[in-house]
Amino acid sequence: MSFILEILKATIPAGTPLLLGALGEIYTERSGILNLGVEGMMIMGAVSAFGITAITGNVWLGVLVSAIVGGGMALIHAFNSITLKANQTLSGLSLTMLGLGLSGLIGKRYVGVPLLNKLHSLPIYGLKDIPLIGPILFDQDPLVYISYLLTFVFWFFLFNTRFGIELRSVGESPDVADSAGIDVSKIQYLAVFIGGIMAGLGGAYLSVVYAPAWIEGMTAGMGWIVLAITIFSLWRPERAILGSYLFGGIRVLQYKLQPFGISPNLLNMLPFIFTILVLMLASKEISRKRISAPSSLGIPYFREKL
């Protein structure tokens, strides 16, 4: 029993960076913009959070800066894809490469620097004593609690507010939204920016809470897994939480399975194989339930001149 409990408890921090990134990407894609630069934004978030925390000793300042840096990176993509109407796939890829390269350049001096100020786990009094789920959910660090909260906020805003309706309609059919008086590019800019902020936070979680350390290329494909989770969640924040923890669990399980004599290299493939399987599942569900991706996803919106 305690074996499973330990796995579940470790799963949540392992899935948190994915959850943060996926929440943001859901908003971005809901607005009709595909941002493949999640990996790049995450790693820039990671390096900036680590750098600021190492310099100032203040973890929260590091987290804040990572959000700003992630958002700033996303604005490059927004400019490319909304203003220049350039190819979104290529823009996203270039953002990923930019992030990986620039973070390596900036982060060189932080390699191997230990972080003495870090976020400690903060059991929530009362809640943590709930049998079973208490110690799993409520004996974590503050950023994990924030991620719970953000999931709710993202869900609430998407489905219950005017902004949410506008966001979804822009992604479904920008011309209809436009004729209804919605400022399409403003909504899209905002959505992409939010996506960047969240990816930045995801990266910060990795470098100042989870590791905590800076390693070149430390996101190691997580940004791409975030994109898969976004599809798996059918662009719904509340389902992203499920997808993220599934992947978190897989990562934790890797080390649990080693004693059974399976080659660790083969176990390392698990998250990536699992991503493909999850995409296939999602694809089945999408066609069965006749859900579709936001229909203008990836297509630039050209406003007709009247």
Partner: peptide, 24 residues
């Protein structure tokens, strides 16, 4: 300079390619 420097330059070239619009 760190090895990542050249990756950074490469990515700038890709962004340039993109902004130039010959991918479009």
């Amino acid at each position: 300079l760190p090895g990542a420097t050249i990756n950074f330059i490469n990515s700038l070239i890709l962004i340039f390619v993109l902004v130039q619009g010959f991918s479009n």
